[in-house]
Design a binder for these strands. Structure first.
Lengths: 97, 97
DNA sequence: CCAATAATTAGATGGCTGTCTAACTATCTT
DNA sequence: AAGATAGTTAGACAGCCATCTAATTATTGG
């Protein structure tokens, strides 16, 4: 697992972005609205999250839509689970059949 | 949840310390041995982990013994689980009956 | 008490990081 | 094509952070 993932999670603004994306795909502008920060600063945070592969992005017209990359989030969960001392193979499913 | 927890996790040395502590309580010296770094630097990392309440410490003679604080690790797990978009109340058990 | 061992604290330093303003690219509309 | 809107890139800067050396505290054993 890449160190960039944890560094990306170290900033509160970026964690809040991820939390907001948990509700579903959102545009850069929609997200930026929620923070008291210039758009370039927000853009920087998006860039860090993208570099860490915590989010995916696609363009739709003038807007750029961001969404969670749950795969990498799963990796983080697994790492933590292991650190825990549990002999994990995988993160368990929320809905066990 | 405190920002310091995530900042503490942002450093690879500190994550490795936590992983080692997953095997059980260890002294500062034992841990320091494993890293190519001066003891003061290691002491700094211990301090950060302690401040974030990710580890607990107790003195035994000349040595200081560190151990995991699983409670805070659980909080991190829960946060991630939520960011995921899962409607979690708690982190699930590893062995679902 | 003195020396040895274990670990921390103090202080300095180089590099990284979050933020800003200004300028730029891309897309849509008229 | 020109203007408006959405977003990024470039460059600067202050503050933070990981690391080091030197000095200090704490404990044990002679």
């Amino acid at each position: 697992m890449n160190n960039e993932v944890f560094k990306a999670l170290a900033d509160p603004t970026r964690r809040e972005i991820l939390r907001l994306l948990g509700r579903g795909e959102q545009s850069a502008g929609q997200l930026a609205q929620r923070f008291d920060m210039t758009k370039p600063s927000m853009s920087h945070h998006f860039s860090v999250l993208k570099q860490a592969e915590l989010v995916h992005s696609r363009r739709e017209g003038q807007q750029i839509l961001y969404s969670l990359n749950t795969t990498v989030l799963e990796d983080v969960l697994t790492w933590l689970w292991d650190a825990f001392g549990h002999d994990t193979k995988a993160v368990p499913s929320r809905k066990p059949s």
